[in-house]
Design a protein around this nucleic acid. Structure first.
Lengths: 190, 190
DNA sequence: CAGCAAAAAGGACAAATGTCCTCGAATTTA
DNA sequence: TAAATTCGAGGACATTTGTCCTTTTTGCTG
């Protein structure tokens, strides 16, 4: 739980006692490689902090292709947010790229925390704001860079993902084809 | 203020009395065409609801080009969120595309509202969650569609913006060049 | 360890998009 | 109103990226 405590402390001021008080609401859970944390069509009742491992979020587009929209690594949060927030069926699946350890909270328990304390209201709001800013960055950057620029950025910012995820998934995450990614990789290695 | 009240009611349950109670914290303001609501380098002390008009958000990339990251139309919120939330200098400018009427709240007043009531904590969190979901949609969609698909989507979802904004700004919003946009428009009209 | 299947690399060509430029129309300013 | 400026359309060519395919490599399973 230590890493999760540190994560929360990076968001809001939080004493160890306060953390201890609320920690019973959180459960730890392990996902084996390729198993799912959320699935398309099923309502997502949990949000998670990733203690160890890597998760891939994807949806299915009109051409029935998997499109990877996010890689979430250690010390980050993951959830099918839309589904979790609205408690409606998920449009996203979240799958473990490797064996992964999670710290989770259920929707119901989170609502209890929100009612119990302004602290949690604050954490909830700060996290939403934070996720928004990350997504904003991702959006504006990826839409205005060339395939090579996007790959170079990923190499810089998410080197661990490059090593663990498949070429297919990396390409769809960057919005390019496998063929283009292959060309870029060749160009870089020489 | 009526449209703003309706907007809030679409987010959280809110009685007319509650709205009246807090409405003194909000100011109305008019921006003339081409004037700024936020500017790069200046800390943004206000967030706004757009009563009427259209705003364009942009940043300057490494090649010193303006990149339009967002068009915000009537009945939506706008802010240089990162700057507003963190109270650090803005990386974005927000400019009026046409004469625009805003309902604004200052950072300080919003903090007072957050302290005063769980209702506003809730509104703040819900809005952040909402903004996140909008951005997520924008990101995943724009990064995996062709130039033409992106333009067609914009034509469908933001027809008013197409009519009001310049070709340059629309192109940079879609992450394509003017030349490509010109080609797409020609192709569509015949 | 051999054989199979899945994943990645890459060839050949096609299509999409970008770059650089010119021209005419629209808009602003003196 | 005339001149100046900005803006949008589009020609010609270069570059990037995609499509379809085959070959090579990797990893798994019996």
């Amino acid at each position: 739980m230590e890493s999760f405590k540190l994560f929360l402390k990076s968001i809001v001021p939080l004493s160890d006692q306060e953390f201890e008080k609320y920690s019973p609401y959180f459960k730890t859970r392990t996902l084996t490689r390729n198993s799912y944390f959320a699935e398309i069509g099923k309502t997502s009742h949990e949000a998670a902090f990733i203690k160890k491992g890597l998760l891939r979020t994807y949806y299915i587009n009109e051409k029935s292709e998997e499109v990877t929209s996010c890689f979430c690594a250690e010390n980050n949060l993951t959830a099918s947010y839309k589904s979790f927030i609205s408690q409606l069926p998920s449009e996203l699946s979240i799958q473990a790229v490797e064996d992964t350890e999670l710290i989770t909270i259920s929707y119901n328990d989170l609502q209890i925390l929100y009612q119990k304390s302004a602290l949690w209201q604050n954490i909830g709001r700060s996290i939403a704001e934070r996720q928004y800013m990350v997504m904003e960055q991702y959006a504006s950057v990826l839409c205005n860079e060339s395939a090579k620029e996007k790959y170079m950025r990923m190499l810089e910012e998410q080197p661990a993902v490059i090593n663990k995820a498949s070429v297919n998934d990396i390409a769809s995450y960057l919005g390019i084809t496998r063929r283009t990614l292959s060309r870029i990789r060749k160009e870089i290695t020489q």
